[in-house]
């Protein structure tokens, strides 16, 4: 029962990251919208060219921009968002699950806390 719930939860996370992620809006999010306010964005081969005055002009290149998974892709390949998402779910689960498992109080299950 417990295992089934956790498995279901994992499957939902994988479906969201691996499938629904293709439906995500490509528009800038709230913070990026504010950072780009005042600039006109033109897509160029070198990236986005910002004309005008805006906060985003101060943004520096990401130190990890050469990561093979930069911008939620596999090697920059088009259409690999879902795979990158699945990778992210697996890595996140491994890191978080591992850390929480190490931090947990051993031998306490709260089985005596009512029906819990």
């Amino acid at each position: 029962m417990k295992g089934r719930f956790l498995l279901g939860f994992l499957i939902v996370a994988l479906l969201v990251a691996g499938g629904i992620s293709y439906l995500a809006s490509p528009d800038p999010d709230g913070l990026d919208t504010v950072a780009l306010d005042g600039c006109h964005v033109t897509e160029t081969a070198a990236g986005e060219q910002l004309d005008g005055t805006c906060i985003a002009q101060n943004a520096t290149d990401h130190a990890m921009s050469s990561s093979p998974f930069a911008d939620y892709s596999i090697g920059g390949g088009a259409g690999t968002t879902g795979l990158a998402g699945i990778l992210g779910v697996v890595v996140t689960l491994g890191l978080a699950g591992g850390l929480f498992w190490l931090l947990r109080r051993r031998g306490v299950t709260h089985a005596d806390d009512g029906e819990g």
């Binding site: 956790l6 689960l93 978080a96 699950g97 929480f100 498992w101 947990r104 306490v108 819990g116």
Partner: peptide
């Protein structure tokens, strides 16, 4: 604990 740690990992993912 043994019950909440796996849940917390999945919530993170």
């Amino acid at each position: 604990d043994d019950r909440t740690a796996p849940m917390a990992g999945l919530v993170t993912a």
